[in-house]
């Protein structure tokens, strides 16, 4: 997995790298009718920072991502991305990778990856060209014309991530990107994502069930309570990290922070 990661980071950075954008979430509350999902959340992400969100199932993680992306508006509080607070403005600055990959079955892997470019008005040929250049880097070469249903789970996830990346947005909102994968593919994909973000840094909010994944991929991890969600702990990932994933997650400092996060998670579930 590391050979793959090394190859990605060695290649020069993407052509149009968006400037970093910071995220500021202040006093945000949200409810679906009577169902209160988010109590009061304050969260700041610095430009090109990666923040992980972990929390019990159904606590409101996906809802928080949708709020940040401008797909929903909070009941109270404010969310700003690079100082812009209205939802169309946030929508223009965020790319969302949903919990399910949602690849469109009527398009090839390449056309799925190029979807945002097409939406932004690029010609089909040009959009495919730009996506194809990254297929190579993401270990998808040879699968350009393949239908999504015929890709493996790891490949589908990579196409979905590529689609998110190619939108060219400064903020990536990733909702449990690897939840559907088996343990080995998942570890491989984590190493891969870390390398991809080193090559092409973005401001990232990463939702996951997995504390280890959150700590390995993020600078900082916010632990959420059961619904209605509030932040019960914010932990900094140990630095410096070993270059390979296995080395990083077995480091004693890393294990200590992981245990602390697990404790916070357990507390928050009560």
């Amino acid at each position: 997995m590391n050979a793959e990661g090394g190859r990605i980071s060695a290649v020069e950075t993407a052509p149009s790298l968006p400037d970093g954008a910071g995220i500021a979430v202040r006093g945000v509350e949200h409810a679906y009718g009577e169902l209160r999902t988010i109590e009061r959340i304050d969260l700041a992400v610095e430009p090109h920072g990666v923040v992980g969100l972990v929390g019990p199932s159904g606590c409101g993680k996906s809802t928080l991502l949708e709020l940040i992306c401008g797909l929903r508006d909070p009941l109270a509080g404010a969310i700003e991305i690079s100082g812009v607070g209205d939802s169309p403005g946030r929508l223009a600055r965020c790319a969302y990778m949903p919990q399910r990959d949602l690849l469109l079955p009527w398009y090839s892997a390449l056309d799925n990856a190029a979807l945002a470019l097409r939406n932004q008005g690029a010609r089909k040929g040009r959009a495919r060209e730009r996506a194809a250049a990254l297929f190579e880097r993401f270990g998808l070469a040879g699968f350009e014309a393949t239908a999504p249903a015929e890709l493996s789970g790891g490949m589908r996830q990579r196409v979905a991530f590529l689609r998110t990346l190619l939108a060219g947005k400064p903020v990536l909102a990733l909702d449990e990107p690897f939840a559907a994968l088996d343990a080995i593919t998942r570890a491989e994909m984590q190493g891969w994502l870390a390398a991809a973000l080193r090559a092409d840094p973005r401001t990232v909010v990463l939702v996951t069930h997995d504390v280890e994944e959150a700590l390995y991929l993020s600078d900082r991890v916010a632990v959420l309570s059961a619904r209605p969600a509030r932040i019960v702990a914010e932990l900094r990932a140990p630095e410096p990290r070993a270059p390979d994933r296995d080395g990083a997650v077995t480091d004693p400092d890393f294990v200590a922070v992981r245990e602390e996060a697990m404790r916070a998670l357990r507390e928050g579930m009560r």
């Binding site: 929508l91 969302y96 949602l102 469109l104 979807l115 945002a116 097409r118 939406n119 939108a167």
Partner: peptide
């Protein structure tokens, strides 16, 4: 509806969502 949300964050207009998602 999740696919429609996804398309919106990928800068799709109403008519692009119609052509690329709803019709197929």
């Amino acid at each position: 509806p999740d696919t429609v949300k996804l398309m919106r964050t990928l800068d799709a207009s109403r008519s692009q969502i119609f052509h690329r998602v709803e019709i197929p």
